[in-house]
């Protein structure tokens, strides 16, 4: 699924990265812990979180995420959005809370990655 479709499903506002909406999203991971993001966010996966600090962007960038969705209508400050734009990490915010957000994406065909985080099955 393309990031553009995710945006429509979640009624999301694009905070930065309009030019990245054609990116492919293969899987999603939702959490509020940086250590879990490091283990489970894979290339081309979408990070769903309610954390809005600069470290989330850094983590998404290091793990090659397709983008970040902030839930519950949360928005990071302007500096975080600018930094994310410079690093090509698209940011979207959805009014849906985390459970609804995950449910909507799941029922539209996006699943979590069930493989061992480090590829060791």
């Amino acid at each position: 699924m393309k990031l553009k479709e995710v945006q429509q499903i979640l009624d999301a506002e694009v905070l930065c990265g309009e030019d990245c909406l054609e990116r492919e999203v293969t899987t999603c991971f939702a959490c509020d812990l940086i250590s879990e993001m490091l283990l489970y966010v894979k290339p081309q996966s979408l990070l769903i979180t309610s954390l809005i600090n600069a470290h989330v962007i850094h983590t998404a960038q290091v793990m090659d995420a397709s983008g970040v969705i902030f839930v519950g209508g949360k928005k990071p400050d302007e500096g975080v959005i600018r930094n994310s734009a410079m690093n090509n990490v698209p940011l979207l915010t959805t009014p849906h809370p985390i459970f609804e957000c995950c449910g909507l994406l799941f029922t539209n065909g996006i699943e979590g990655d069930k493989k061992n985080p480090l590829g060791r099955d």
Partner: peptide, 11 residues
């Protein structure tokens, strides 16, 4: 900030 979950060393 999302750190300090007690997963650092195990990770």
């Amino acid at each position: 900030m999302g750190f300090g979950a007690g997963m650092g060393l195990p990770n």
